[in-house]
Every structure is written in structure tokens, then in C-alpha cells.
Design a protein around this nucleic acid. Structure first.
Lengths: 151, 151
DNA sequence: TGTAAAATCATACGATCGTATGAGCCCAAT
DNA sequence: ATTGGGCTCATACGATCGTATGATTTTACA
């Protein structure tokens, strides 16, 4: 994502350069002020993008509602184990899979991309030695990795 | 995301055009250099923040929508196995799905065609009001339609 | 400070899933 | 005999899944 902003900043630079060139060609004006403003604009654009990214992009588990579910499950004397060396994020994804969510829904819930979720899922299946999400859910239930089904 | 970039580019183009227009027409020449740069910087910062937000903020989540229906069904104390009016064959397929088998594997197990299994599954999901097999398994577990997972 | 683990993202590809539609067969009940 | 429900099968199609590969960035720790 940072790369996206940087690339866009580069595009802006190109745009400004083209504008300067056109202006120089047609009006032959002094370039110092324009170039200065262009640099400032580019810099502020990148800075603003970075700020916006920092303020809004918080995919960490601290902001995710599913952590509440994890805590809830733990507090309700349902021990959430981890026998397959899953990372916290992978564990989180596994729980959301067990709730019947699609990858896209999980990506939205965690504020990450679809690719990330699929990567996590693939690693989960690899670690748990299964081929399908239904198998993963079954194994996870038998080993207490996910909250038990109520009812 | 692409649209966001396009919109940003359009805003930048508008900004640059307005600056040029203002510079040649009205007050730009009279403004202090610091104020001029400040305006550009502020504008670009806000736009940059907007683009950063747009690029990183994902739309809201989607949750499973049949919990109410489940609670309703359970509160009426219906016979568990008749909750969803599954036929014996459909029930059989549901159990095999819950064991993590693919449709092809279920077809082989039941000695029927893949089409038949998919038809059964589709009818199951329709009767249970779910969209994915994982949801069906979860609902089935909560209602005792399938054998519980053993630890 | 360097490193390893974790998390993120992208692209591509084949496999599987789920839906829709239409059809034929068997069997029990009307 | 007709009807309806259950079971079967086929085709087509879009959606989703799962894997593979490679990359960058962040974080935790020695």
C-alpha cells in the first residue's frame, strides 16, 4: 500500500513535469516558483497519503472484533488450545472460517486483502494437514482450537 | 481502488487548473509566497489523506444471517432431526459433508454421480437457509443433525 | 543492529463449489 | 391411473476455493 502511494506520487511528479514542460513551451515563464510548488505538492501528497494510511490502516488484531470473541471464548472456560503451531493471525482466520464466512468476508472483517486471507488459510491447512476448510473445522473442533458449537 | 486513483488524479488536475487560472487571472501574484505554498500543501495533504484512507479502508463485514432463525426454531422445541425437513438421502449427504469430504468423494462413497450429490447439497443448503457447507455443518451441529465432534 | 518470524499483498492457475434448469425413474398415496 | 415426493443424472455457468510463487513490510528478539 505504501508502494501504491509512492507510485502515485511518482505519477504526480510526471504530471507536474509535463505541466511545467507544456507551460515552458507555450509561455516561456520562469520555472522556479512552479517547480517549487510542484515539489511541495508532491511532498505533501506523499505525506498526506502516509498520514491517512497510518491513521486508518490498522489490520492488527487489536482492533478486530474477533478478538473479543476469542476473549469471550476463553473467559467462558472453553480453553482455546493451539496444538498446530498456528500464528495468532492464522488462528483468528481459522475461527472465522469455522463460522462459515467466505474468504472475502473474512478479508473485510479483518481489513486485509483477499490474498492475505488466502495465504493464511493455505498455511493453516498446511500446518493442520488438511485439504479443505471443512476438514480444518472438524480437526479444530476435536482439538479445541475453536469455540464449541452451542446448542 | 483503480477508481480511487482516477478520482485523485482528476482532483489534482482540477487543482492545478484552478491554480493556473487563478495565477493568471486574479490574486495569485499578490499573495505571499508562503501563503501560496501553504494552500497547495494543505490541499495536497488533504487529498493525500483522502487517498490514503480510500486505499486502506475496507467496507464493513458481513455476518451470518440465520442466527435468529436458529434461535426461533430451537425455542419451539421441534424434534431435532425434522427441523429442516431433510430427506434421508439429504441427511446422509450432510453428514458426509460434515466429515470434510468433497462432492466427488461423497459421490464415490454413495455410488452416485457427482451431479446427484450437488443436487442434494443444493437442496440441503436451501432447506437449511445457508450458502456454504461450513455454515451447514455449523447449523447441523447446533441442532444435532450430525454426530458431535469428539475431543 | 541484524535476523527470523509474522503479516501483508499480488498474480496466476486449476479445482471445487453452488446454482439453475430440465429431465427421467420409482414408489406410495389418492 | 394419476399425482406427488424422493432419487437420479446432465449441462452450463459464475463464484469461490486452494495452491504456488515471489515479494515487501512489520515486528519481536537475540
Amino acid at each position: 500500500m505504501v508502494r501504491t502511494v509512492v507510485i502515485f506520487g511518482g505519477c504526480m511528479a510526471v504530471l507536474l513535469g509535463l505541466l511545467k514542460w507544456a507551460e515552458y513551451m507555450f509561455f516561456a515563464r520562469d520555472l522556479a516558483l512552479e517547480a517549487y510548488i510542484g515539489i511541495v505538492g508532491l511532498f505533501c501528497t506523499i505525506l498526506g497519503g502516509w498520514i491517512g494510511w497510518k491513521l486508518t490502516h490498522k489490520p492488527g488484531p487489536a482492533t478486530i472484533a474477533n478478538d473479543l470473541k476469542l476473549e469471550e471464548a476463553r473467559s467462558y472456560e472453553y480453553p482455546i488450545l493451539n496444538n498446530f503451531n498456528l500464528s495468532p493471525r492464522e488462528h483468528e482466520v481459522l475461527i472465522l472460517i469455522s463460522e462459515g464466512l467466505s474468504y472475502q468476508q473474512i478479508a473485510d472483517r479483518l481489513s486485509v486483502s483477499l490474498s492475505t486471507v488466502k495465504t493464511h488459510a493455505s498455511n493453516i491447512f498446511s500446518k493442520m494437514d488438511v485439504q479443505r476448510r471443512t476438514q480444518a473445522v472438524m480437526v479444530a473442533q476435536k482439538n479445541g482450537l475453536i469455540p464449541p458449537a452451542k446448542g
